[in-house]
């Protein structure tokens, strides 16, 4: 076992995920359609109803479409994280996840490789979305598209780790649909993806606190600030801490001695 083995394995796992992504064009299209509908339909409708005051990182009045663009990138990564975990539940039921787990590498490394693979796909989707938004005249400073890369990496890892954690807790695919509803909708709507914090505070104090400490909110803020070449320290710390926490729990969940899979059984006989 050496570094070369680790490198080959990670390249294999990431390469496979990218190949699958390229082969499944409908997955790519559907990943883009969702945020584009929000951008072109929802945001266009809300533009008149919702005024956005000047607040960092914005230095002038902005259109609502501009405001929700980072939130929609977060949405892409959130859905991608959930879809990756859905595929892991499916893989585990169908057996191909077992093939991965049988290979002679530490399980934490395999999980991190899977996570990086999923994050790479989500970053491609995010840039494709930003490209279409550019054509729609929603543009950030050019360097913002470079600054955003590390932010996308961290937020993708955090949301992917959340998906991994969920997949370790769920035994059957049927249970996953319910969890998607109980995770995606609350996480997305109780965040700054669609409305700024001050706007949320105007309507509900408790919702404001939930949104403030929702790791998804902070991932979105990290992306928002990065897009305008600014570093959001609180967003970075919250996202990084949430990533470490979710990933640690996911590794524990997949531990052959202690994980949920042991207690719930592998199915079969």
């Amino acid at each position: 076992m050496n570094l070369l083995h680790y490198g080959l394995a990670m390249r294999g796992i990431v390469g496979r995920e990218l190949l699958r992504f390229l082969h499944q064009r409908e997955r790519f299209v559907s990943a883009l359609v969702r945020p584009l509908v929000w951008l072109f339909v929802f945001a266009a409708g809300f533009r008149a109803a919702l005024g956005i005051a000047i607040s960092p990182p914005y230095e002038t009045y902005i259109l609502y479409e501009v405001y929700i663009t980072p939130g929609l990138i977060g949405m892409i990564q959130l859905f991608n994280g959930m879809q990756s975990s859905l595929s892991m539940v499916y893989d585990r039921e169908m057996g191909s996840m077992r093939m991965l787990m049988v290979c002679p590498l530490p399980r934490w490394f395999l999980l991190i490789s899977k996570l990086i693979a999923g994050t790479a796909v989500s970053i491609l989707q995010a840039y494709a979305f930003l490209g279409i938004a550019w054509l729609y005249d929603i543009r950030a400073p050019l360097m913002g598209y470079v600054w955003i890369l590390p932010a996308l990496l961290l937020s993708g890892l955090m949301l992917g780790a959340l998906g991994l954690l969920l997949s370790s807790l769920i035994r059957q695919l049927e249970n996953f649909a319910g969890v998607m509803n109980f995770v995606i909708f609350p996480v997305f709507f109780m965040s700054t993806a669609l409305y700024p914090l001050w706007k949320i505070k105007e309507s509900s104090e408790w919702l404001y606190w939930l949104a403030q400490y929702n790791p998804f909110s902070q991932a979105v803020e990290l992306i928002r600030f990065a897009l305008y070449q600014q570093f959001n320290q609180f967003g970075f710390l919250t996202t990084a801490i949430a990533f470490v926490l979710f990933m640690s729990l996911a590794i524990l969940g997949y531990n052959p001695s202690r994980g949920m899979m042991v207690r719930k059984g592998g199915g079969g006989e």
Binding site: A9, I13, H23
Partner: peptide, 22 residues
């Protein structure tokens, strides 16, 4: 149960496995 990736070719599936084994 079959654990091959149906969307990949035979060679791609085998290369993936080879990579996992270094």
């Amino acid at each position: 149960q079959t654990t091959l990736d149906p969307d990949l070719s035979v060679t791609q599936n085998l290369r993936y496995h080879a990579a996992l084994h270094g």
